[in-house]
Simulated scan of single mutants.
Amino acid sequence: MVSLTNFNKLSEILQTFITDEEVADLCEKWGYEDTARKLSAHDLIRFFVISSSKKWESFRDAETKLPKEKSLPSVDHSTLAKKAQNVPYQILQELFSRLIKRLGRGARRALLKPYKLFAVDSTTITFQHPDMSWAGYTRTRHAIRLHTKFDVEEGQPTQVVSTTGRDHDVMVAPRLYKDLESLSIITGDRGYARTSDFQYLHERNQFFVIRVAKFFSLSEELEHSVPLDAGGKVKVDQTAFIGKGTRKTKSRFRLVTFTDNEGNEIRVATNLMMMSPEDIAYIYKLRWQIELFFRWVKGNLDLSNLFGNSPNAVYSQVYGTLISYFLLRWIYNETKEEWEILHSYTFIEFTRRYIAHTLPMEVRCAIKSLFGKWGSLCVSTGKI
């Protein structure tokens, strides 16, 4: 049984949900023979999750800190680099997807009953290194891009598609639109505005609120009256066919134009016909939560500081970082109601105390209670 103290360690939490047997099965699936004695594939997974949360700066930096980390073997930086280059990153990618499926089924408070709101967006991580030509972006810089579907209410990513920096949002969007829950709403910025996708989502009874550029062609516009409220930000509420020629939509969609807090005009397309225009504007503004997620991951888990140069090393670190974020956010979401009366921690404050092992006893007891419900089943079966 894991002690109360160990529930405050991310390595022990990770071990609860990802077993050695599961990692071994994934190694076999992806054709990797794990023969190393000093550093196993599972050790490498733990390394990337722990290094991101503790903000280790490089493989060399990690070498000096590993002796103090009891859950990891002490190895030199060259061993770490070689292992990261050889272990298929798809193993960490699949573990991240499995965690989402296992831990994303908890009770949810309805944000916009009965709808479930997802934001889609991408973040680009750029770097300069002569050995990273595989991630071409510009003449002097290389980049990878994380295309993400984000559960706004839970504050959690539910899907991440990793590509090089040249893969634009609109080309990857169809992969994010698959397997949506019923009564889902997708909200996105102009990078996701494509008329064929509007029609695709509409014909599958999926809702969307996506920003469109001013140059988008409209035809057969029908405007609806907007209350003359001096403080109102909604300017236009209309329906129209979007696009022209072969790209013109088959269905008539709604377009709501409003201003943001800085007075900038925003126009969104949607197939939500029964909601008020103010609600449509509000849904789009909630898209900002995914931007905050990207900022948090880059700033607090140091994702912009890449350790290795090869695709395996880079993408393994990326998915290790995402696993770290997912577990921390899940623990925070699942325990907050039990201790928030006594301690009003933000997610950032909670995470800092969790990593530093300075959480109050009430919070640690709530975490122990959580794993009393989940831990034994996970350890015995490896499944939720």
Rank of each mutant, 00 (worst) to 15 (best):
F7Q: 05
I13N: 10
L14E: 12
F17V: 15
F17E: 10
T19D: 08
L26I: 12
C27V: 01
E28Q: 10
E28K: 13
R37S: 09
K38A: 13
A41R: 07
L44H: 11
F47C: 03
F59N: 14
D61M: 10
D61A: 13
P67Y: 11
S74T: 14
Y89W: 15
L92I: 00
L92G: 00
R109V: 09
R109H: 05
L111V: 02
K113H: 13
K116W: 11
L117S: 09
A119P: 14
A119T: 09
V120L: 05
I125R: 00
R145F: 00
L146F: 09
T148L: 08
F150S: 09
V152E: 06
T158Q: 08
Q159E: 15
S162G: 04
T164Q: 03
H168Y: 08
L176M: 09
G188K: 06
A193H: 07
F198L: 08
Y200K: 13
H202Y: 08
R211D: 09
A213V: 01
S217I: 06
L222D: 11
E223I: 05
V226K: 09
K233F: 07
D237R: 06
F241R: 05
G243K: 08
G245K: 01
R247F: 14
R247M: 03
L255Y: 07
L255F: 02
V256S: 05
F258I: 06
T259G: 05
T259L: 04
E265S: 15
N271D: 15
M275Q: 06
M275N: 03
K285L: 07
S304Q: 08
N309Y: 10
S310F: 13
V314L: 09
V314N: 03
L322T: 01
S324E: 03
F326A: 04
L327D: 06
L328N: 03
R329S: 10
W330I: 04
W330A: 06
W339E: 09
T346G: 15
I348V: 11
Y354W: 12
I355R: 04
A356S: 09
V363D: 03
V363T: 12
A366M: 03
G375F: 07
G375M: 05
K383Q: 15
